[in-house]
Design a protein around this nucleic acid. Structure first.
Lengths: 262, 262
DNA sequence: TTGCCACTCCTTACACCGTAAAGTATCGTG
DNA sequence: CACGATACTTTACGGTGTAAGGAGTGGCAA
């Protein structure tokens, strides 16, 4: 049986991921409190502010103290990722059909990603393979189980929904981060930029007529959303519309699967 | 007319973005050669390796020499982003209908993102607002112009397609980056991880039955793709399937728009 | 010719990062 | 009481973006 480079590290990190949480809470550090502190740092100040020194400081220790419990920053991020994924609901009633449940999942996931935007910056390939990542996949598969979709289409659908939700949430998360880092609201930013744009690109409307038209087209505002920042409001609307489109596509695939074979 | 913080910087960077390319090619540096060198660094060694020192070194200058031409690293990345977006095709014949054209666009975009994976790490919110970014949007809008979709749905569709392609390409790009950085092929990685997983999570199949089933289900291989790495092959298949599902959804929206109003 | 200024580009420096290496204090056990 | 393990610290190295200031060069007015 071949042994590959890094397998020893793989075993250590997988053990950390699948370890029973809790244990005796003593005066010293533990993996749990370190992961919690790291999540608090990332939630509060963003992934860019997540440093070993910052986590250590929050715990009243030096940065190097963490290395007694966690092999490296990369493994710490993996642990943070899987731990926080545990906040996602996993049970969705299918009384209203898969479409209602899938929409609810997407909405929950969007809210979750916005509560922990740093999660979107954790690499997708070479997944962490922790228990809560599988719990999330399992929830999606339970929702789609009754549709009769074959494994191949099922994978494609799950991937498309996850990509879409991650991407749409990422836009909103980026907008919020930008607002915080620049101290400039979306409105201020957009206003000043479009003023400069009109000045710098004088032939804009003729070079990009369709973009200019769709940019100018202001959709009627929905009651209650006036207070949401400009770009974020647009992004939330786009999320709802795009999700509907995507679900229509899933519905077509389901109908096809029920009519014929896979 | 209110003046917001950073507007002066905004004017400078917009001027850089929309400036006519070229100019006299002298012995000294220029914005163009700096942006080209930076793109070469990012293409070759990834976004993480893009440092002002690395770009300067490639040009035989110090890092600080770049600051004569470019205000900061952030602006440089914006310039790289818009410059490289110019590689995307913008004309898609509509002879075969919008669906064929949109599929072609998605395929081109996927290839483009894989050629320049660092583009996926450029923030989406607060867009760069450069000419080539608008050219890309314009190309998408031209493809979808004849569908009769209203502006709101149009925005949602464009967003959903872009998010999907970015997300799917991102998974593949991450997989390649991981393979390069760890020196471990996808097969090696997956084999060793799943071995450890079976050992660490003994009740895996009973805790996550659907995930276990879909993981075990091996789809029939398509001729010619045997040489593609494991995870990447899966990702490409998922891309094709997911794109079809998404396009089915767009088709439903188009049919609805043609039948009734909005 | 001389003096000056603008333009390029350089060196130095600072505060931050992840983490390797080595030192110290405390404690359970032989 | 000695010893080794454990928990934690300090120090250090090579990396980052970029502010500050200096050096060399060329054009131009006096």
């Amino acid at each position: 049986m071949a042994v590959f480079a890094g397998q020893g590290d793989a075993r250590r990190s997988m053990r950390l991921l699948w370890r029973e949480p809790g244990g005796v809470a003593g005066p010293g550090l533990s993996v749990d409190v370190i992961v919690d502190a790291a999540i608090a740092v990332a939630d509060g100040d963003g992934m860019a502010a997540l440093s070993m020194r910052a986590v250590g400081e929050r715990l009243g220790r030096s940065a190097m103290a963490l290395y007694t419990y966690v092999p490296s920053k990369a493994e710490l991020v993996d642990l943070m990722y899987d731990r926080v994924l545990g906040e996602l609901p996993t049970e969705y009633p299918l009384d209203g059909g898969w479409r209602v449940a899938l929409r609810a999942w997407a909405e929950d996931a969007r809210v979750f990603f916005l509560a922990h935007p740093w999660v979107l910056q954790v690499s997708q390939a070479r997944p962490v393979l922790g228990p809560n990542e599988f719990a999330m996949l399992e929830a999606l598969l339970r929702i789609l189980r009754g549709t009769g979709l074959g494994p191949s289409v099922l994978r494609g659908v799950v991937g498309a929904v996850v990509q879409f939700v991650r991407g749409a949430a990422g836009v909103i998360a980026d907008a919020r981060r930008a607002a915080r880092e620049t101290g400039m609201t979306d409105e201020e930013w957009w206003f000043s930029r479009s003023e400069v744009l009109a000045e710098v690109a004088v032939d804009f409307a003729s070079r990009f007529p369709l973009s200019a038209a769709i940019g100018a087209e202001e959709p009627p505002s929905v009651p209650g959303e006036e207070c949401v920042p400009y770009l974020e409001r647009d992004a939330v609307r786009n999320f709802a519309v795009g999700l509907d489109v995507l679900l229509d596509g899933v519905e077509a695939a389901v109908a096809r699967a029920r009519a014929g074979g896979s």
